[in-house]
Amino acid sequence: MILFWFLALAVVASAVFVVTAKRPVYSVVGLLANFAALAIMYLTLSAEFLAVIQIIVYSGAILMLFLFVIALLSSGVRPFSVGPDRLPRVLVPLSLFGIVALGGLLFVIALNPSAAGTSNASGAPLGPPGQANVFGSVADFGKVLFTTYLLPFEATAFILMIAVIGVIALAGDVDPIPPKARRRK
């Protein structure tokens, strides 16, 4: 219980920091803290495999990617200068509405917590993590992933491949319009 509130505080604080940090590098650090806290929270929710993945893939791979891009963009060229983050005036009521709606969601959930449902669907009992036939264990997770959900799994593999190809096509050396020609316009 105390752990949850502590983690929740850490998550919210780091999230706010991510969004409000002046420089992107700080944002990345905030995000790292956020992800780490989330990983611990996953562990408390018996999702051990996801917790590991969260650390390895998100913190290890994706955030590194962000860092590389930041390093790439700010080296040699003018430093990042982000102006005032103002919205177009028309969109202000919209954003207000969106925030109110999200607040409404919180309100609804707080109003009837049972709406989420607490039925025990899988027969696996809770227990110490790391063993088969315990809810959330890596063994169970793997079994389900490669049997019931094989097709979505393959599909994500395909999506990743397309993403790789797309990135190569986008950021590769082949640049149809040289920057100078473009600037002259």
Partner: peptide
């Protein structure tokens, strides 16, 4: 960002 806000608006409409 305007597009993003439109999406948020849509999501919010669903929630409401």
């Amino acid at each position: 960002r305007a597009y993003a806000l439109t999406i948020v608006f849509g999501a919010a409409a669903f929630i409401v």
